[in-house]
Amino acid sequence: MNAETVRAHPDAPGALIEARDVGLSFGPTPALRGASVAVQAGEILAVMGPSGSGKSTLLHCLAGILTPDTGEILLAGRRLDTMRENARSALRRDRFGFVFQFGQLVGELSAVENVALPLLLSGTPRAEALARARSWFDRLDLDGTQTRRCGELSGGQAQRVALARALVARPEVLFADEPTGALDSLTGEHVMNLLVSCAREQGTTVILVTHEPRVAAYADREIIVRDGTVTSFAAAPLLP
């Protein structure tokens, strides 16, 4: 690790992942304008805000998928935004997990092969990768779906397979972008219960983008992204 890039932030001691004054424009359109947030290890953070406010862009910057024009992204004090792309790619593969709104499973693979994918890509022997992947099916109430192709899964099953795939390599950070956006209320609740339980068990930090308050309520706290900047409010004590 480069000593120059390892430094604690005075406002966020011990933060696992952090955006500092991040700006990013798409052409002439600013998506983020000085967005800052610090997420502690093991924390579940909800990122809320109106459509087009920049919340998904912030998540992509924190995950090293997008590179900000200005500001810094730090993972355990190490600059993420200045890393070479191959280093960021390895980091995303080995230390991050991702769940998106529509699962984005690989259609040609079976459910268990989809779950094993991150392990296979990081060099785990196939037999071991598949064995570890299979262990998730009972845990996520997916018995009997291991050999099915993704097209044969219901929306809730596909999203649970995507969750298993995101967590199988025990990532430090799970990025979830509207993970229940395509599901009905009851199925979405099932997915969120499993996501939170598994993350807590593994000590995984979760950054959860959602516009649904009922989904955000699974998080420890929320931030609001508005016009590309972050606002955060602790709940004030209520008057009797």
């Binding site: 009922r214 955000a216 309520a217 699974y218 606002t231 409010f233 709940a235 209520l238």
Partner: peptide
């Protein structure tokens, strides 16, 4: 409105914990 949103979300967290 921001403070009220935070208070509502805090109550929603409590109710979600009760559900779980």
């Amino acid at each position: 409105l921001d403070l009220q949103r935070a208070a509502h979300l805090q109550r929603m967290r409590e109710l979600t914990a009760l559900k779980r």
